[in-house]
Nucleic acid binder design. Structure first.
Length: 323
DNA sequence: CGCATTTGACCGGCGC
DNA sequence: GCGCCGGTCAAATGCG
């Protein structure tokens, strides 16, 4: 249900047409595909159960969650160069409709060309803007997070410089563009508020940091003790790194098995939480597929993927004592 | 003073 | 070719 909402939201954001047209399975596909399926970018986003959301909203919780920083480039290795994921034909089997798929592919190609252009532009500018050959360049990896938050720009441990803001079509909320302030790091992120649900903030990361988070080496500024913040981000960073590797691993397995997308849940309980839960969620609320297939939560999975509640996200698996 | 933000201009892709 | 749109630039401004 939540994913459907998000897919519809994204659809509106992108094209303002056919809202609510996707069914569950195509929604899942659509989102994954739109945002990163082609270049094998795992997309993480919030999938808070609706009941829980409503509870949070009605109780007017000051609910903020720092979106997790993308993994460092070292963590991805050459797995990022995997071939494009063939998704539309293999996943949209059950109830997806072709119009949605076409639309998704269209938008996806749009994104591709845009990104290629941006990267080309950046290169050509750096090289004294002489001639620019449209070299095929690999897309930067992108990660989208949907987060319930009252503030637009969430702390994630990195320092960002805002370089633009644009009005979003059919949305009263603007989209902000940020770049990582680190000189050698070209990571960007976009932050926009969901027009359908103003309490939700969509953060899209593009690229991977080539450096450690500043809060790993310095203090933080969001009301935590330095030790707890360092602990949080260190653990979290390593978790995400592991997580990311696992995603890629499982993606490979999934491609071989059934090429199913996987979904994650990112949500943060509590006020300006210092914890972020990342749990596996079966795609399409798993109508017709073996849940363990999408994200190996079974015994075959690493221990950090087992359900330890919040603990699994805060304490690295090798520091926990599994009962 | 150095850095971050704001904001209008600009650019290129795309659809008509 | 034109207009729309998403994304970026960069000068002006703000702030500690």
């Amino acid at each position: 249900m939540e994913r459907k909402e998000f897919a519809a939201f994204y659809d509106q954001q992108q094209q303002q047409q056919q809202p609510g047209m996707f069914d569950m399975s195509s929604s899942d596909l659509g989102f994954m595909d739109l945002l990163g399926g082609q270049d094998f970018s795992p997309y993480l986003y919030d999938m808070i159960p609706q009941q829980q959301q409503q509870q949070q909203l009605s109780s007017s919780l000051q609910y903020q969650s720092p979106p997790p920083p993308p993994p460092f480039s070292e963590a991805t290795s050459d797995l990022t160069n995997l071939p494009a994921t063939p998704n539309s034909d293999s996943i949209s089997s059950a109830t997806s409709n072709e119009a949605a798929t076409d639309h998704i592919e269209h938008v996806n190609s749009k994104i591709t060309s845009k990104q290629e252009k941006e990267e080309d532009d950046e290169k050509s500018k750096q090289q004294s803007k002489s001639k620019k050959k449209p070299l095929k360049k690999q897309r930067a990896q992108r990660y989208a997070f949907k987060t319930q938050s009252e503030v637009d720009h969430l702390e994630d441990g990195y320092r960002w410089r805002k370089y633009g803001q644009k009005a979003v079509k059919n949305s009263p909320f603007p989209r902000s563009y940020y770049r990582c302030t680190s000189a050698t790091c070209g990571v960007k992120k976009r932050v926009e508020r969901c027009s359908d649900d103003p309490s939700m903030v969509v953060t899209t990361y593009e690229g991977q940091h080539t450096h450690l988070s500043p809060v790993m080496t310095r203090g933080s500024s969001i009301g935590m003790s330095q030790s707890s913040m360092n602990s949080h981000f260190n653990n979290y960073g390593s978790m995400m790194q592991n997580h990311y590797q696992q995603q890629q691993l499982h993606h490979l397995q999934q491609q071989q098995q059934q090429q199913q997308p996987y979904m994650y849940n990112l949500q943060t309980p509590g006020n300006y939480s210092t914890t972020t839960t990342t749990t596996s969620v079966s795609p399409s609320t798993s109508h017709h597929h073996d849940q363990s297939r999408h994200f190996s939560t079974s015994s075959a999975s690493p221990s950090f993927l087992r359900d330890h509640g919040l603990l699994q996200d805060i304490v690295p698996s090798d520091m926990r004592k599994d009962e």
